[in-house]
């Protein structure tokens, strides 16, 4: 589904991703771990098509298409979803309105009729239940005045609404209490299907108790320096990043 080969990316001339390769297939869950500033969010942004980052080298193909040919909004409509580490506030725009616009843009792209008001409301109710989000939240402006946890839950709600093929969740578990963490993980698991894939970026192996990954990668200084299965996350938790660093040096 997603194939990254030898990717290098920079911001304002400063290299961040330095020759990174990664393969993600349908049905898989990948976890990316790594110290602060190692480039995890940058990788997610580059995949999502954020233009502030420059791609210097390498290629990314997604569903057989060259990702660099597609602008950010088209990548989204093609099923790439990014759960933001720091979701932004959009004052005055309700989540309902925001999601309706997003879904109908996607449907237009796919040649489908827009959802009617009633259809949309029904879908929203269904997904709200699924990810256990409070009813009132969708009437509020996008992320405005949300608590940290509410923001993260809102990302999962949006993911449920958009039913992506490839979801990249950037520290969606950070700042969640244990109940909320279960809610988020539950949401992700319920949305998991044979034909979609999830990449979770996290600092905590705890999340991986709930969302069990097929692969765990360690991102360090812009490169994936070690990959393994779930046990790698446990090992990391125990021994820290220095251990991998030494081992691969």
């Amino acid at each position: 589904m997603l194939s990254i080969k030898n990717l290098s990316a920079s911001i304002y001339g400063k290299p961040i991703i330095k020759g990174l390769s990664l393969e993600v297939n349908a049905g898989e869950v990948h976890a990316i771990m790594g110290p602060n500033g190692s480039g995890k969010s940058t990788l997610a942004s580059v995949i999502a098509g954020r233009e502030t980052f420059d791609v210097d080298e390498g290629e990314i193909s997604y569903m057989g298409k060259n990702l660099f040919d597609l602008p950010a909004e088209v990548r989204a409509r093609e099923g790439i979803f990014m759960g933001f580490q720091y979701p932004v506030e959009i004052p005055g725009v309700s989540i309902a309105n925001f999601m309706r616009t997003a879904i109908n843009e996607k449907r237009k792209y796919l040649g489908l009729d827009p959802l009617t008001g009633a259809e949309f409301l029904k879908l929203m109710e269904e997904k709200k239940k699924m990810v256990d989000i409070q009813s009132k939240l969708t009437n509020r402006s996008v992320n405005e005045g949300f608590s940290g946890g509410e923001k993260k839950k809102n990302e999962i709600f949006q993911m449920a609404m958009l039913e992506p093929r490839l979801a990249i969740l950037d520290e969606t578990d950070s700042g969640l209490d244990i109940d909320a963490l279960k809610v988020v993980a539950n949401g992700v698991n319920k949305l998991r299907r044979k034909d979609n894939a999830t990449v979770v970026i996290t600092h905590y192996q705890r999340l991986l108790d709930y969302i069990v990954p097929d692969f765990v990668h360690v991102l360090y200084d812009g490169r994936i320096i070690k990959s393994g299965d779930k046990s790698l996350a446990l090992e990391l938790e125990e021994k820290g990043y220095d251990w991998v660093k030494k081992e691969t040096a």
Partner: peptide, 20 residues
């Protein structure tokens, strides 16, 4: 970028933000 990541193009995003 947040809007575009959800599939809304630049002009749609501006429209949405301005209306908000």
């Amino acid at each position: 970028f947040y809007c575009m990541q959800r599939g809304i193009d630049m002009e749609g995003a501006i429209g949405l933000i301005v209306n908000g």
